[in-house]
């Protein structure tokens, strides 16, 4: 009987240990799936979940903080992912956290990554819907690659055609490859180009030098470019010129008028001169009538001859006794007047 009891005890021990192991395994699995302990349920809406499944991990800053509880289709283009998080992480996740779908390594299972937000928001609450960020999907990537491949095929076709042309000696490129004369010409052209560019470079250096001088020197250009006071001076000058022009305007009008009257006087003068030219009037006669001029000359000669004789007469009169006294008296008075002052 004692042996039987002992056996029963052993059996009890066996059963207890086995059940304990099972419970431990269940708990460990359950804790991975967050079945025990307090939970925080949140959700996020995606357009594509890339094969995410209920039970997949949810990570925050790389730490497993929960699992995907369920995935439901909201409509034809949006999928809602409901997540069950450990309540303990609640204070650390803010309302502006962003969920994205990633995978655990290259071949690992899918998971939801929650990235921290900017930080100023209040902490997450039960039932909150956080924003999602869709990464580039593999299919899209493959589509793009497919397009690239097609393009590459087209390009390679074109290349093939070009190389065919070239080997057959058609087109400019083929000519370039085969024509040695052209090559020599091309080389010369390149040499020339080189020389030109060297000169250009030198010119560039000079230009640079010039620009440096303009920049650093104190010439007019420099002042124009850099001296701001020049601009203001220029402005004032222009203003003064403006006022001057305003003031000059009436004067100019006056000048105009004078010119007009001058022109009228000119016309009159013209008419007068024409009259003179044609010999009308006394002046005209004087100028034009040669006979009259001859008369006047003879008259003047006569006058000259008359005055000469008059002078002789006067000399004769001086020596006449009647007038001699008068002239002597006049000669005496002359020197006295000179000594007096």
């Amino acid at each position: 009987m004692a042996k039987r009891t002992e056996n029963t005890v052993k059996l009890g021990l066996f059963i207890t240990i086995a059940v304990a192991l099972f419970v431990a395994a269940a708990y460990l699995i359950g804790s991975q799936e967050n079945m025990f302990g307090a939970n925080l349920r949140i959700s996020s809406v995606f357009s594509n979940v890339n094969g995410l499944q209920p039970g997949n991990n949810v990570r925050y800053s790389g730490i497993n903080i929960g699992t995907v509880e369920s995935i439901t289709l909201l409509n034809d283009s949006t999928v809602q992912v409901n997540m069950k998080l450990d309540k303990k992480v609640q204070p650390y996740i803010k309302k502006d956290a962003v969920a994205s779908i990633g995978s655990d390594g290259l071949v690992g299972s899918m998971l939801v990554n929650i990235s921290p937000g900017k930080g100023a928001e209040p902490m997450l609450e039960e039932g909150d819907v956080i924003t999602s960020y869709s990464r580039v999907e593999t299919e899209e990537l493959l589509n793009t690659l497919g397009k690239t491949n097609e393009n590459i095929a087209l390009i390679s076709n074109d290349l093939l055609r070009i190389t065919n042309y070239m080997t057959r000696g058609k087109g400019t490129l083929a000519l370039l490859l085969r024509d040695t004369q052209l090559a020599i010409g091309l080389r010369e052209a390149i040499f020339n180009l080189q020389a030109t560019s060297q000169r250009l470079a030198a010119t560039g250096g000079q230009l640079q030098h010039l620009i440096g001088e303009v920049e650093n020197g104190s010439g007019l250009l420099n002042q124009l470019l850099y001296d701001t006071s020049v601009i203001s001076n220029l402005n004032t000058s222009i203003g003064q010129i403006d006022t001057l022009a305003e003031k000059a305007a009436p004067f100019l009008a006056e000048l105009q008028r004078s010119a007009e009257s001058l022109s009228a006087s000119g016309a009159t003068l013209n008419a007068l001169l024409e009259g003179l030219e044609s010999g009308q009037g006394t002046a005209g006669l004087l100028l034009k009538d040669t006979a009259a001029a001859e008369d006047i000359r003879r008259t003047l000669e006569n006058i000259e001859a008359g005055t000469a004789r008059f002078n002789e007469n006067m000399e004769a009169m001086r020596h006449n006794f009647l007038f001699r006294r008068y002239f002597k008296k006049k000669e005496k008075e002359g020197p006295k007047e000179k000594e007096a002052p």
């Binding site: 460990l28 699995i29 359950g30 991975q32 799936e33 991990n57």
Partner: peptide, 18 residues
Amino acid sequence: FFNKVFRQLSFSDLVPAT
């Protein structure tokens, strides 16, 4: 080791097997 084992396991593994 056991962390990795149980991270991969779920109840859909354990319950039907049991």
